[in-house]
C-alpha cells in the first residue's frame, strides 16, 4: 500500500519523485541472500577491497521486509524458485532485482532437470549482470546501472509496468501449461 495506488501521475508526483529517487538511489539496502558461486563474489564485493555495500550506502539486511534490492546471486533450482518468489513478495515496494551471473540470467551451464533457466521466469529483473561468476567490478557496474534506473524511477509507471509483466508471465505460463499438459 504505497503511494503508487493512491495517485494518478501528475506534476506533483513527478517532482516529489525526484527527491525520493535520489534517496532511493543512495540507500539501496540489499537482501542478504546468496544462492551459489556468485554469492561468494557478492560477499567479496562487500568486503574491504571493494566495499560496494557501504560506499554506495547499501547496507545488507537479513530480513526481506527492510530490503530494497535483491541480488539473485547464483543458480535458481526448481526447489528454490518458490522460495525466491516468496522472498520477492515479502519485500516492500519499491523493490529492485539484480540478476547476477549466468545461472540467474539464463540458467548458465546447468541446463538440467533441476534448474530454472533464468530467474526472470520467476520474478521481474531490472539489471542483468553477466559472468560466471561476474567479477565484483561487474557487480559494481550493475549497481551503477541500477542507480541510473532508480533515479528515473516513476512510482506510478513502475507499478503498472510490474503488473503488466506479472500478468504477461502468468498468462504465458498458463498457455505453456495448457500446451505441455500437467507435470508427470
Amino acid at each position: 500500500m504505497g503511494i503508487e495506488d493512491r495517485f494518478e501521475k501528475s506534476i506533483l508526483t513527478t517532482s516529489v519523485d525526484s527527491v525520493f529517487n535520489w534517496a532511493r538511489r543512495s540507500s539501496l539496502w540489499w537482501l542478504q541472500f546468496g544462492l551459489a558461486c556468485c554469492a561468494i563474489e557478492m560477499i567479496s564485493a562487500a568486503m574491504p577491497r571493494f566495499d560496494i555495500s557501504e560506499r554506495f550506502g547499501m547496507l545488507y539486511r537479513a530480513s526481506p521486509r527492510q530490503a530494497d534490492l535483491m541480488i539473485v546471486s547464483g543458480t535458481v533450482t526448481k526447489k528454490m524458485a518458490p522460495v525466491v518468489r516468496q522472498l520477492y513478495d515479502q519485500m516492500a515496494e519499491p523493490k529492485w532485482v539484480i540478476s547476477m551471473g549466468s545461472c540467474a540470467n539464463i540458467g548458465g551451464p546447468f541446463d538440467t532437470y533441476a534448474v530454472v533457466q533464468g530467474v526472470d521466469q520467476v520474478i521481474p529483473v531490472d539489471v542483468y549482470v553477466p559472468g560466471c561468476p561476474p567479477l565484483p567490478e561487474a557487480l559494481y557496474y550493475g549497481v551503477l546501472e541500477l542507480q541510473n534506473k532508480v533515479i528515473r524511477y516513476d512510482t506510478i509507471a513502475r507499478k503498472q509496468s510490474v503488473d503488466e509483466a506479472e500478468a504477461f508471465r502468468e498468462q504465458s505460463r498458463a498457455e505453456a501449461q495448457a500446451e505441455l499438459g500437467p507435470r508427470r
Binding site: L35, A36, G74, T75, T77, K79, M80, V83, P109, F110, T112, Y113, A114, V115
Partner: peptide, 11 residues
Amino acid sequence: LGYLHRGVEKL
C-alpha cells in the same frame, strides 16, 4: 537439502 541441487553428476 537440495535447494542448490543442479544435477552435476548427470551433467
